[in-house]
């Protein structure tokens, strides 16, 4: 059997003097739908950037597919949280999705082939926006934008999909559809997602961790009160109430 898809061993990360990640251990195995939850500023995006090789770890080792993250990137699809780009960029939906394959296109000129276009159509189909492929991206609604970003991550047919707060920009019905989509994708690739919204964790996740600088996990899909209290430093019921998918076992009021 293969080794873990992602393996972090006591990884620390300092950003402008502040310890954002503190001796984080993480093991994501093949076929996982792994969710990392934690408060804003808890280091979730930093964790993903370290896994993607966009930020160097200050100490510890990071291995993705058993190798350096930079070498593993061609097998990763990434759905960023922060819009590092402008949806007013003159680009059609198909062109945007196709651009996600550019790293796989060989040669100096990197022309797209029929195979690339086919992959783009497939990714658009999976995210249910094939009918929008000729539209300029500036005409998309928030939910459609999110689908386009996911399609761009899928177009390279990755073995690992990394999503940063994928539900932030979408409404409730879209959120449920996106979860169905992730569930379907889980059979083909390993999925790692981070979110600050515990309500976004469906019962389909295989493993959960809480991150607030340090990481807390039982290596199962269960979120325990102690994990949450440790990560959030606040009574659990404040965050646990009113969530659509209850992942907690019944618990009494804390505090």
């Amino acid at each position: 059997m293969n080794g873990p898809v992602i393996e972090l061993e006591s990884v620390s990360c300092l950003l402008s003097g502040r310890t954002v990640l503190d001796a984080v251990d993480l093991k994501v195995r093949e076929g996982d739908l792994y969710a990392v939850i934690g408060p804003n500023g808890g280091g979730k995006t930093t964790l993903l950037k370290v896994i993607l090789g966009l930020l160097p770890a200050s100490s510890g080792t990071v291995r993705v597919f058993g190798t350096d993250p930079r070498k593993a990137r061609s097998r990763i699809g990434y759905v960023p949280q922060y819009r590092t780009f402008d949806f007013r960029y003159p680009l059609t939906v198909e062109e945007m999705v196709l651009s996600g394959r550019l790293g796989l296109v060989p040669g100096l000129v990197r022309r797209f082939s029929e195979k690339d276009r086919k992959a783009a159509r497939k990714a658009l189909e999976r995210t249910a926006i094939l009918h929008l492929s000729r539209r300029p991206i500036c005409d998309l609604s928030g939910g459609e934008q999110q689908r386009a970003i996911i399609a761009r991550a899928l177009v390279g047919e990755p073995d690992l999909l990394i999503l940063d707060e994928p539900m932030v920009y979408v409404d409730m019905p879209t959120e449920l559809q996106l979860f169905d989509m992730l569930k379907a994708l889980k059979d083909e690739m390993t999925v790692l997602l981070v979110t600050h919204d515990i309500g976004a964790i469906s019962t389909n996740v295989t493993r959960v961790a809480c991150l607030n600088g340090k990481i807390f996990t039982h290596d199962t899909s269960e979120i325990s009160e102690e994990m949450l209290t440790a990560a959030y430093h606040c009574p659990v019921d404040l965050i646990a109430h009113g969530i659509p998918h209850r992942v907690f076992r019944d618990h009494g009021r804390v505090g």
Binding site: F85, L91, G100, G156
Partner: peptide
């Protein structure tokens, strides 16, 4: 369009 994603794509 997206410098960060271009980096992720190597």
């Amino acid at each position: 369009f997206d410098e960060e994603y271009a980096r992720v794509m190597n």
